[in-house]
Design a protein around this nucleic acid. Structure first.
Lengths: 189, 189
DNA sequence: ATGACACTAGACAGACCTGTCTGTTATCGT
DNA sequence: ACGATAACAGACAGGTCTGTCTAGTGTCAT
C-alpha cells in the first residue's frame, strides 16, 4: 500500500479540527488547547503555521467558504435547465440542513460571537457577496425581467430558511423557501 | 421633586447594563466584571439576585422578549385594518433595524455563541413560538385561506430580513420583506 | 436604638485563555 | 552523512473568567 494516507500535514489536521470544533461549538468558546489536542498537533505548529488564533479562524472561514461554494456549484450540475438550477440552491440547502450536525451559517455564527473582529466581518461579507452574485446570475439565466430585484428577494428566502433550519432544527424551512422561490420566479419571468 | 428617580435598584441597573453590553458585544464575550462595573453594583449583589451568570443571561433574554413583544403589539395599534396590521410587523422591524445599535436577533446571537446552554435554547424557542403565533393570528384576521401556511412563509421572511439587516447593516431587507409579504398576502386571500 | 435588609468594596481561589519558549525527534534532499 | 525542515511535548508567563467570601455602610420599620 503506497497511496494510503501518509498522514495529513499538521496544517491539514489543524484545519480539520478547527472546522469541526469551531463550527460545532463556536470560535470563541473553543480554545487553542482543544484544537491542538483534537488535531494531535503541537502548539508551536499552530503558531508557526497560522500566526495566531485569529489567523486560524480566518483560515477556517475561508475553507468554509470554499466548501460551500463547491457544494453548491457541484450540487447544481445535476440540473439541466435554468429554472431547476436556481431552485436547486434551496435543494442543496435543504440537504445540508438535514444533516444532524448542521448549526446554521458559520459566518453569521462567528460574527454573532462578536469581538468586533474585522477578520470575521470580512469573510462574512465575501461569502455574502458571492451568494448575491450567484442568485443574480441564476436569475438572469432563468430570464427574470428584473434579475437584481429577484436576487434580492431570493437572498432573503435563503437567509430566512437558513436561520429557520438552525433554530427549528430541521430542513422544513429550506423546503418551504424552495416553493416560495418557485412562485417568485414564475411571477418574475 | 418627589417622583424623580430615587435611583433604580441594583437589580434594575444590572439588567440595564446586561441588556446594553450583552446585546452589543455578546453574552459570552462580556464578563461579569464588565457588567457590574457598568451597572455600578457590587459583585455580591449580582450573585444574590441572579445566582449565576446564566441566571443573568436568562433574565436578559426574558426582558428582551418582553420588550420585543411590547414594541410589536404597541407598534401595531396604529393600524386599523388586518392587512396593514400584518404588514406592520415588518414596518416595526424596519424601524428597529434602522437604529445604529441594531445587531440582529438577540436570541439567535446568544444561541450562536454556543455553550450548548439550554437556558438560551429555551428562551429562543419561547420567542419563536410567540412570533409564529403572532403571524398565525394576523393571517387569520386578514382572512387568509390557509393561515398556517401563510404564517410559516411570513416567518421565513421575518427571519431572513432580520439576518439581512444585521449582516448588511441597514433596514433594506425588512422593507423588501414587507413588499414580499404584501404579495403573499394578496395571493392568499 | 435595634435588628433586618439591601447594598458596597474588594480580596481570593481555581480554572482557563493566548502566546512564547526550550528542547527533542523524524524525515528528506543533497 | 549531514543540514534543513517539520513536527513533537510541554513548561511557563500574564491575563481574564466565574464564583465565594469577608467586612463594612446606609436605611427603615418597629
Amino acid at each position: 500500500m503506497s497511496a494510503t494516507s501518509p498522514r495529513p500535514s499538521a496544517r491539514d489536521r489543524l484545519l480539520d479540527a478547527a472546522d469541526e470544533l469551531f463550527y460545532a461549538q463556536g470560535v470563541h468558546t473553543v480554545g487553542i488547547d482543544k484544537v491542538i489536542e483534537h488535531a494531535g498537533v503541537a502548539k508551536a505548529s499552530l503558531y508557526s503555521t497560522f500566526g495566531s488564533k485569529d489567523g486560524l479562524v480566518r483560515a477556517y472561514l475561508q475553507r468554509r467558504h470554499d466548501d460551500r461554494r463547491n457544494r453548491i456549484t457541484t450540487g447544481l450540475e445535476r440540473f439541466d435547465n435554468p429554472r431547476d438550477r436556481l431552485l436547486g440552491v434551496f435543494d442543496v440547502l435543504a440537504e445540508t440542513a438535514a444533516k444532524p450536525d448542521f448549526r446554521g451559517c458559520a459566518f453569521y455564527n462567528a460574527s454573532a460571537e462578536a469581538h468586533p473582529s474585522n477578520v470575521v466581518q470580512e469573510e462574512a461579507d465575501a461569502t455574502r457577496a458571492w451568494t448575491r452574485q450567484l442568485f443574480l446570475d441564476l436569475a438572469r439565466d432563468a430570464g427574470a425581467r428584473d434579475p437584481e430585484a429577484l436576487a434580492a428577494q431570493l437572498v432573503i428566502l435563503y437567509d430566512g430558511s437558513t436561520a429557520g433550519a438552525r433554530l427549528d432544527r430541521g430542513p422544513h424551512a429550506p423546503a418551504l423557501a424552495r416553493t416560495m422561490a418557485a412562485a417568485l420566479l414564475d411571477a418574475a419571468t
